[in-house]
Design a protein around this nucleic acid. Structure first.
Lengths: 340, 340
DNA sequence: ATGCAAATTGACACCGGTGTCAATTTGCAT
DNA sequence: ATGCAAATTGACACCGGTGTCAATTTGCAT
C-alpha cells in the first residue's frame, strides 16, 4: 500500500527521479557523491523498486515460468526446488504452468499463458524440450527459454544429464555383480534421454562381449504403470532375467511392484535398479539402487542460465555452452549378485 | 513485441481509449452499438490486455502465489494441479514459493517475495496456515489469502477436509474387519489436521466400547521417516498391533517399509492404512488402503475463492463461508481381517 | 419545440518506472 | 583565465492501462 516510490526518494535526496533510477540500476555516469546520497535515502525510506513499473517501462517482466508435463512427480519436485532456489536468490518470480503434452491446442494454450503473465523466460521440461512448433512460437514471440534434456544438447540453451554414461555405468555395475541376463526398460520414445540411456545400456553390454538378447529390451513410457507392464512381460520370459534396469526410477518402482506381486524375492531372485534417484527410491521396499542425477543442480543451473540471459549477461562459471551433468551410482537394497 | 495496445483499438474503432477500457472491463454505461463496434475491432486486431499495465494502474497484480513447505510431495503435487486448473481457467498466473517453515526469518523472506512479485493473493498450505506472525504481516500489507486446513476452519478464508470424519471412518472400517489392537501414528503437532485425525480415531475406538491402549498412539511428523520410526516402536510392542493407521499416506508407506524389513506379511499379519490418497499409494506394494481426500478439488476451490476475493466478487456456489470436504474410503491391498 | 435527468463519452492526470536528448557541470590542457 | 571534451544531471515523453470529472448526447415528459 503505502509503498515508497522513486519519486519519494528523488524528493528526499534532492535529485531527479531519473538519477535515482540510474543508481538503482547501477549505471555508470553517476558521481560517487550522488550515489552515496541516494543510497542513503533508499535505505532510510526502505524503498523497493516496483517490478511492474519496471516491467512496463522496459517491456520485460523478468518473470520466468516452468512449463512441465512430466510423468514423474518426484523428478519435477526436485527440479522445482532447484529452480526456486535460484529464483529466490535472484529475486525473481517463478510462474508454474501445467501442460498437457497431448493437447492438440497446446501451443495456443501456452501462448495464451504467456500473454496472461508476460513471462519473458521459460524453462522447458521433457517432452516439451523438443516440441518444434512450440519452439517456433517462442522464437516468434521473442520469449527466451532454456531446455532440459533436449535432442541437441550442445546448443547452449539447455541443461542435460549424461544419460549415455549413466546407463553405461549402471549396466557395468550389474555386470560386475555377474549378471548376464540383464533386461532394459526403455523410456518414452519422444524423449531423447530414453534413447541416450538405451545407447549406454547397449554399449555396456557390447563392451562386455555379450550378445544382447533383443527380447530383454522392452518399451516403457517413463510412467509407473508402464514399468509394471514391462515387468509383466519380462518376468514371464524363460529364462527370466536376473536383473532389470529401467530408464527411470518411476518405472523401476513399477517393476518392483510386479515382482513383489509374483512373489519374486528382491534382490535375491531379481535385481532392480533405476535412473534419476528421486525421493521415491528411499520410500519403497527394498530401497532402490539408482543413478543419482543432480536434479536440483540441473534446475538451479537452468534457472541461472535463463536469468542471466534475460539480464543480458552471459552465464558465468562453467558456461561453455553445453551443460551436461554426470550421474553418481547410489547402491541401495534392490541389487545384489544373482541367485545369492 | 508488436503487440496491439488499447490505443490501437481506440484509433481503429474511432473512440477514446477509456471507452475501450470500459468495454474490456464489461462496465455498464456503454451503448450496445459502441460495445459491438469495439469488440469487433478487438477481435480483428487480436488485442489482449497487458496485465502489467492493468496491474500498475489498478495497483493490483492479479497474480497469486502458492506458499508451501509440506513434507508430502505427493500431496503438494495434487494440490498444485487443482490450483493450476483454476488459474488456467481464470487466466491468472500462479507464482510458486518454497518456504522453510523453520527459518527464523521466514516472515521477512515472504515479505520480500511479495515485494518482488507483487502477488496480491496467497494460498497457504499447512503448517503455514496457522503461523500467526505471517498472517499479521499479510494483513498489514493488505495481501489476501486463503488457508488450507487451519485451526479455525469456519473463518471463511479457508478450505479443509474433514479430518475427524476421515479418521473415524477409517477406524470403523478396521473395526469392522475385527481388528482390536489398532495403532495410530500422529501427524505433526503443529498441524491441526493431526489433532483432528486423532480425535476421529479416539472417538471411533471409544464408540466401539474399547478402552484405548495409550501405548498404541505414537508421535509422527507427517514424514516418511517418522512413519518408519513409529512403526519400529509399534512393531516391537507385545502384543503387536494387528493394524496401524497413519495420519497421512507418507507415514503409512514408512510403516509399510519397516514391516517389510522385519519380514511381516502385509496384510496377512498386519493391516496398514493411511489418509490422503496420494499417488504413492498405488506405487508401493501392496497398494495402500487410504481415505481419499479430494486434494485436487481442495486446491481448485482454494484458488477459486481467492480469485473471486481478489476480483471483488463473493465466491459463488457452496460458499457459505466454510468449505469442508469429505473423504472417501479407498480399499486396496494393504488391509484385511487380522490373522487371515 | 423545450427542459431536464440519465446515459454515454472523452480529456486529462496518474500508476511507477525507463529512454532520449539536451543542458549543465567538471576536469584538464592551453 | 579560457576553451573544450567528457562526465553528470534533469526535463520530458512514454510503457499500457484505469480513475475522475466534466462535456456531450439521448430519451422522455411537458
Amino acid at each position: 500500500m503505502s509503498s515508497v516510490t522513486i519519486n519519494d526518494v528523488a524528493r528526499h535526496a534532492g535529485v531527479s527521479k531519473k538519477t535515482v533510477s540510474r543508481v538503482i540500476n547501477n549505471e555508470i555516469n553517476v558521481s560517487e557523491e550522488t550515489r552515496t546520497k541516494v543510497m542513503a535515502v533508499i535505505h532510510q525510506l526502505g524503498f523497493k523498486r516496483n517490478p511492474l513499473g519496471m516491467a512496463l517501462a522496459k517491456n520485460r517482466s523478468l518473470f520466468i515460468a516452468l512449463l512441465a508435463d512430466n510423468p514423474s512427480p518426484g523428478y519435477l519436485q526436485k527440479l522445482q526446488k532447484g529452480i526456486l532456489q535460484c529464483c529466490s536468490e535472484e529475486h525473481m518470480g517463478l510462474f508454474l504452468y501445467d501442460c498437457n503434452y497431448r493437447s492438440p491446442t497446446l501451443v495456443y494454450e501456452i501462448e495464451e499463458f504467456i500473454d496472461n503473465t508476460l513471462a519473458d523466460g521459460l524453462i522447458l521440461v521433457p517432452p516439451l524440450s523438443d516440441k518444434q512448433d512450440l519452439l517456433d512460437m517462442l522464437q516468434r514471440k521473442r520469449v527466451r527459454y532454456i531446455r532440459i534434456g533436449p535432442k541437441d544438447q550442445d546448443s547452449g540453451d539447455c541443461v542435460s544429464f549424461n544419460g549415455v554414461k549413466a546407463a553405461y555405468e549402471m549396466t557395468q555395475y550389474l555386470l560386475r555383480l555377474h549378471h548376464k541376463d540383464i533386461a532394459f526398460v526403455l523410456g518414452h520414445p519422444d524423449q531423447e534421454s530414453s534413447h541416450r540411456c538405451e545407447r549406454g545400456f547397449r554399449n555396456a553390454i557390447a563392451d562386455a562381449g555379450i550378445t544382447l538378447n533383443e527380447q530383454l529390451v522392452v518399451q516403457g513410457y517413463y510412467t509407473h504403470q508402464s514399468g509394471v507392464d514391462a515387468a509383466a512381460t519380462l518376468l514371464s520370459r524363460t529364462p527370466r532375467p536376473t536383473a532389470i534396469l529401467a530408464a527411470n526410477d518411476e518405472m523401476a518402482v513399477g517393476v518392483l511392484y510386479e515382482a513383489h506381486r509374483r512373489g519374486i524375492k528382491i534382490p535375491e531372485e531379481l535385481s532392480v535398479c533405476g535412473i534419476d534417484d528421486i525421493s521415491l527410491t528411499t520410500k519403497v521396499w527394498p530401497n532402490l539402487t539408482s543413478m543419482r542425477q543432480p536434479i536440483n543442480a540441473i534446475g538451479y543451473r537452468a534457472a541461472f542460465k535463463l536469468i542471466k540471459k534475460l539480464k543480458g549477461e552471459t552465464a558465468a562459471g562453467n558456461d561453455g555452452g553445453a551443460d551436461i551433468f554426470d550421474c553418481e551410482l547410489i547402491v541401495r537394497e534392490s541389487t545384489s549378485q544373482p541367485g545369492r
